[in-house]
Write a protein that binds this DNA or RNA. Sequence first.
DNA 1: TGTCTCATGTAATCCGTTACATGATTGG
DNA 2: CCAATCATGTAACGGATTACATGAGACA
Lengths: 180, 180
Amino acid sequence: MARGAQTEMAVLGALGVMPMTGYALRQAILDVLGHFWSESFGQIYPTLSNLERDGLVVRLGSERSTPYSITDAGLERLRALLAEPVQQVPPRNGLLLRLFFGRQLGADACRRLVLDARAEAEQQLAGFDAIRAEIASEPETDVDHPYWLLTISAGEHAARATIAWADECLAELDRIGAAS
Amino acid sequence: MARGAQTEMAVLGALGVMPMTGYALRQAILDVLGHFWSESFGQIYPTLSNLERDGLVVRLGSERSTPYSITDAGLERLRALLAEPVQQVPPRNGLLLRLFFGRQLGADACRRLVLDARAEAEQQLAGFDAIRAEIASEPETDVDHPYWLLTISAGEHAARATIAWADECLAELDRIGAAS
DNA sequence: TGTCTCATGTAATCCGTTACATGATTGG
DNA sequence: CCAATCATGTAACGGATTACATGAGACA
């Protein structure tokens, strides 16, 4: 799959849930997919233009704030994109890189980094609780909900793993700090 | 921190452990930092040239395969880079994006994706065992080892979390598949 | 009236991968 | 001697962020 098709997939997928303007699309991606996906305006608007040119999305009105809707051809394209193999992004974890070179950085600075990561994970957990509550509060039994909950669960597992690791880590860093 | 400084940090950090050629550097980054970092030749060689020009690394011989060594100025720069705030990479998880739009993809295809992710996590765990064994086998009590083990532990926690999530996920996908 | 949010876009720039090109060295 | 690995680079391309520019509508 071409790398560019990733943005296309996210945009078509979101419009597959409900029609939206480009602006709302970005908000939705930030709020709902935020913990595992991101897109910037610089990607979204050109992508929407291309999709409209190719007849994969349409605007039902002519005003500025008319939302885009996905077409049948768009749905077909979305399904084709989703079926393509997952593309691995090369990992780049700044925290672990710093810890790996922790001897140069010093045990104290490492502790602070790990504490920050732990706090961030706690915040993520709180955020997931809020999203769960919001999903549960929606009246109709949405057919998408079960899938959405799978992604939330992934985030929760990851965050809890981070917290457990951080606690081990802090204990170990105390030992290292005391020894040096 | 400028984004470009990331590669500089990884290269200086690796040379802070031991002198290496550019080629060996790439192998080391692939083998040792592979689960949380990556660099390509296209980044490594220009970076090495710049570092040499700035006196942060030197080559002690003049032949092709002379390893680069970090200088005192280089060590200083490394410590400064490590002390800068961690830079978050925008998340892009193709698996979770597909699951989120799972209704379009279908429960069966989702199952396959999750199974793949689970298998990959198992492989990672096996890889971490191998690295742990290798580190433990090194004779001298290396002052870097405790820090390296922290990063391994992070990988293990993440991989185990992925496996636990995948198992829950598969059960839930069975339920979804049966209902539809 | 002025500021905030909604809304759409473009251009510069940066990062990073990929592909290509070249040649030395080593081991079978 | 031939293949694989070691070793060094460069050029093209693509993708993504960032900053900039513009303007409408709401509301205080």
